[in-house]
Design a protein around this nucleic acid. Structure first.
Length: 122
DNA sequence: ACAGTGACAACAT
DNA sequence: TATGTTGCCACTG
């Protein structure tokens, strides 16, 4: 299948999320063929602020929120506001209580053909 | 090998 | 809506 690490797969997929749209950790996990790895997706993205900080600029991590349509960096006020700021900057409406209307901004996602591509090449 | 850790999610109250 | 609980997972000492 793939020799690409889960982190790499997550980053590759997140890079495909169109500007002005959002998706959830669970959807990302599902698209990667791991319907129950939502938590691990969040873990992978959190790594962007330390060991994988070098990739932070190329991965639109702010476009991934929780399944309830809410920016979920609750315990880190700074990051939560930063994420909301980045989203608003590209047209995504984020309420004061950090919520996004998924009916309007949810990304459709990719089809299996494209996913297959992501799981392999760099 | 193994227990601990989170930017999750579904479900019950 | 707002908690709490429980199941899950990749990754880390």
């Amino acid at each position: 299948m793939s020799d690409k690490s889960f982190y790499e797969q997550v980053y590759a997929l997140v890079r495909r999320i169109p500007r002005g749209t959002v998706t959830s950790y669970g959807r990302v996990a599902h698209m990667l063929g791991r319907p129950n790895a939502a938590r691990a997706v969040g873990y992978a993205l959190s790594a962007l602020k330390d060991e994988h900080a070098d990739r932070r600029g190329e991965v639109p991590w702010h476009r991934v929120i929780n399944s309830q349509g809410r920016v979920s960096i609750q315990n880190r006020e700074y990051s939560a506001q930063e994420q909301a700021r980045l989203l608003r900057a590209e047209g995504v409406m984020v309420s004061d209580d950090l919520r996004v209307n998924l009916d309007r901004f949810l990304w459709d996602g990719l089809h299996w053909v494209e996913i297959d591509d992501i799981l392999r090449e760099k």
